[in-house]
């Protein structure tokens, strides 16, 4: 384990998670990760290694067969997804989790579901979202499904901030999004970290993710292959990629 980072208390920690969709077939075999305030921690790895499954398990969509998820002293293993917001965890899945047939404004209102009775608060937060993302304000009465991919991501980001979560689980935020918007989205994620949020980012866009990551987990076929601070991996992204690609390849041909 690297000791170059100062010991910081993590906002969400998972130990030894094992899980699968069908009983008897495990996709994760004993994975341990931490989300740390102010840090962007990136989970990398080839397709089908269980990166997305890991986030689903962390958010409660899939129950781990073994292992534990905690937020400080609170055990979150087995907590239903709809209750995760109350524990300060937000999840942004690969496909934007917006409601395509509801208007942008109603999408935002639903983002305030957990505090829907505090009307002034809801209104203030929606106005703030419009100020931060003017395009959402312009299109407030349009159905969310008519927004572009990048705008849907903005809507989802704006909405996810409403309950003021401490931890963000983000899955492939730039998948199928035009490159111009990609940089904006990474900048958004960086901004969250600057505000002290703990980010766990799963990404296929290795260059983009490493550009903002503080810490890297590399997964291979359901378990952690290696991990360490971004600086430890050096600046040679190609090396990292070829490293796990090579070992992956070697494991397959062995």
């Amino acid at each position: 384990m690297p000791d170059t980072l100062p010991a910081i208390e993590s906002s969400l920690s998972a130990r030894n998670l094992a899980a699968g969709y069908v009983s008897g077939i495990e996709i994760l075999h004993g994975v341990s990760v931490d989300a740390v305030p102010g840090q962007i921690r990136c989970v990398l790895g080839p397709n089908g290694t269980g990166k997305s499954t890991l986030l689903k398990v962390l958010f409660g969509f899939l129950k781990p067969s073994t292992g534990e998820i905690r937020s400080g002293p609170t055990v979150l293993t087995g907590v239903a997804p709809h209750a995760m917001g109350r524990h300060g965890v937000a999840y942004l899945p690969q496909r934007p989790s917006i409601f395509p047939f509801l208007s942008v404004e109603v999408n935002l209102r639903l983002g305030a579901w957990s505090f829907r009775r505090r009307h002034a608060d809801v209104k203030r937060k929606i106005e703030r979202a419009y100020a931060q993302f003017p395009i959402l304000g312009e299109r407030r009465n349009q159905t969310a499904g008519t927004l572009s991919g990048g705008q849907q991501r903005q809507l989802e980001f704006a909405r996810s901030l409403f309950p003021e979560p401490k931890v963000f689980l983000i899955d492939e935020p730039t998948a199928s999004i035009e490159p111009r918007i990609t940089a904006q989205i990474y900048e958004l994620i960086r901004g969250l970290a600057r505000d002290g949020k703990a980010i766990l980012l799963v990404d296929q866009n290795i260059k983009g993710a490493l550009g903002i990551a503080d810490y890297v987990y590399v997964m291979r076929t359901g378990s952690l292959y290696t991990e360490g601070p971004r600086t430890e991996f050096g600046d040679d992204v190609e090396l990292l990629v070829s490293q796990w690609l090579y070992t992956h390849h070697a494991a397959k041909t062995a």
């Binding site: 997804p81 917001g85 999840y91 899945p93 989790s97 917006i98 209102r109 639903l110 983002g111 579901w113």
Partner: peptide, 24 residues
């Protein structure tokens, strides 16, 4: 009403509804 909108939300995506904290 926000309850009606939540019903609509669940009909569109149970996953997204639970992400915003709606108990399906």
């Amino acid at each position: 009403t926000v309850w009606g909108q939540a019903l609509n939300a669940v009909s569109q995506s149970r996953e997204s509804a639970s992400i915003v904290g709606i108990n399906s």
